[in-house]
Design a binder for these strands. Structure first.
Lengths: 163, 163
DNA sequence: GATAAATTTGTTATATTATAACATTACATT
DNA sequence: AATGTAATGTTATAATATAACAAATTTATC
């Protein structure tokens, strides 16, 4: 990849999504082991369902899928799993969509930036040092202590512009 | 003000909020006239209520206030007014709070950046050219066409850090 | 292994945020 | 006044999320 600030690219024609799902699950298992937290079957399944989608997933869509599989049955089931996965840095919530995506770089907790295509719904996760720097510098200059960042760019991805 | 990229500052001890409410309302009236859209009593009142608060306002809080005044009575009343005000660039929605704030620079449609204090709830609106530039440049380098931006920094404002 | 403690999940109920659909009223133009 | 358009009212419901408490499971300790 030319640009190493891209944590999760847009999914082009030959993007092998099955592989990145497997990779994500492997990493999640390792992360949870090393942190001494439990990636239970339920939590694991929710993470799989999120990674299984090419686009951000809504909580109640997850709930429907779990119900189809006779796992979990009520909103708290899903929201607790989402809370766990968010807490462990395995997924992100997109505030402008009320939807969830797998984290492209779950090894470290971080803030990142999202490019959201309004046409195809696909999302790219990036963490650009220039963006982080300019935001931190600005906050600092105003005496503001940064605890978290929500950076979501809505627009059209290259593929959709090409038509 | 030292830094002219600040569209709406944090409200310090001697911030005369009544004056900025009046200024905002005056500007809103003028904007709507010049655009040929109607700032009806309801819409105007919603805008006043939003500006009347020092912190972001929730839709259902607005609804409660309107009910107290025997104006409007149901959610659509409020959401329609909010939609109008958003459309006209007179307010902004904070996606990470599901709440609304008056726009510090309603003369032009624009995207801006928000610093949200988790302690006092106060919000500053800025529009920093460096931030805009670095985000635009990054999007462009990925072939992404920007239509809108959600940039919300959560943290602690200077006052609250000082304690 | 039995027991106690802690964590996770189930369950029911409800809170919060937002929109759909259609009726009515107000305003603007003729 | 008649007509068309925009705004608001009204009822119902969709979509997102959490509270509170019970039951089951896992982990730690005896």
């Amino acid at each position: 990849m030319a640009n190493n600030s891209v944590l999760m690219p847009f999914k082009d024609r030959d993007h092998a999504h099955q592989r990145c799902l497997e990779k994500a699950l492997d990493q999640a298992v390792k992360n949870c082991e090393s942190r001494g937290v439990r990636l239970t079957p339920l939590r694991r399944r929710v993470l799989e369902l999120i990674w299984g989608s090419h686009t951000p997933v809504k909580a109640y869509d997850l709930l429907d899928q779990l119900r189809d599989e006779q796992i979990g049955s009520a909103p708290p089931t899903v929201y607790r799993s989402l809370d766990f996965l968010l807490e462990e840095g395995l997924i992100h919530k997109l505030q402008s969509l009320n939807a969830y995506v797998g984290c492209g770089e779950p090894l470290k907790h971080h803030t990142s930036q999202f490019l959201i295509c309004r046409d195809c719904g696909d999302v790219a996760e990036i963490d650009d040092p220039d963006i982080q720097r300019v935001l931190s510098r600005k906050a600092e200059s105003l005496g503001f202590q940064v605890l978290d960042k929500t950076i979501e760019i809505q627009g059209l991805c290259e593929k959709c512009i090409a038509g």
